[in-house]
Simulated scan of single mutants.
Amino acid sequence: MDFRALVAGMDDVIFGVLGDTALFPDLEQPVRGMFAAPWRDPQVGRLNTQLREPRFVVRPADADLVEEGQVITVQLPAPDGGDYDVVRKEPDGTGLVALLLRPRP
């Protein structure tokens, strides 16, 4: 077994047990990933902006199934669950892809 196959097997277990689910456009099955909404909180002068940057981290093959500007539905309880616009995709440095999100009004 090569290294990539070993890592793919580990990803299957980790995403299957610990992952969150999201619905992607045109897919019947939910996609498993990891949702996070860290506070960035950059300061502008003395004003704390308290910005959140929600993201849904998925495997590259799953990231290929969604385009920037599409809507995904994260299946979590409030305040994190709901509909989000995919703003952009970026590698997260671990072989996965982070979908950077914007909450829909």
Rank of each mutant, 00 (worst) to 15 (best):
D2Y: 10
F3H: 13
F3S: 12
R4W: 11
L6K: 13
L6E: 15
L6F: 14
A8V: 07
A8K: 14
M10H: 14
D11L: 11
D11S: 15
D12L: 09
D12H: 11
V13D: 01
V13H: 03
I14R: 14
G16V: 15
V17R: 13
V17C: 04
V17A: 13
L18K: 06
G19S: 12
D20L: 06
D20F: 04
T21D: 05
T21Y: 01
A22K: 00
L23I: 06
F24Y: 10
P25Y: 03
D26P: 02
P30L: 01
V31Q: 02
V31W: 00
F35C: 07
F35I: 03
A36N: 10
A36V: 01
A36P: 05
P38Q: 05
P38Y: 01
P38N: 08
W39H: 08
W39Y: 05
W39Q: 08
D41P: 08
D41C: 11
P42Q: 08
Q43F: 10
G45F: 07
G45H: 05
G45N: 12
Q50H: 12
L51Q: 13
R52K: 06
R55W: 00
F56L: 09
F56D: 00
P60T: 14
D62E: 08
A63Y: 06
A63E: 00
A63M: 11
A63I: 09
A63L: 11
D64G: 03
L65P: 03
L65S: 07
L65F: 06
E67I: 07
E67N: 13
E67R: 15
E68N: 06
I72F: 00
I72H: 00
I72L: 13
T73A: 10
T73L: 10
T73W: 04
V74Q: 02
Q75D: 05
Q75M: 12
Q75F: 00
L76E: 00
P77R: 13
P77N: 07
A78D: 11
A78Y: 09
P79W: 05
G82A: 08
G82K: 10
G82F: 06
D83H: 12
Y84Q: 06
D85P: 04
V86T: 02
V86A: 01
V87M: 14
K89P: 02
E90S: 09
E90C: 07
E90T: 10
P91W: 01
P91I: 03
P91E: 12
D92Y: 02
D92V: 04
T94N: 08
T94V: 08
L96D: 07
L96T: 13
L96Q: 12
A98V: 01
L100A: 02
R104W: 13
P105D: 15
P105W: 09
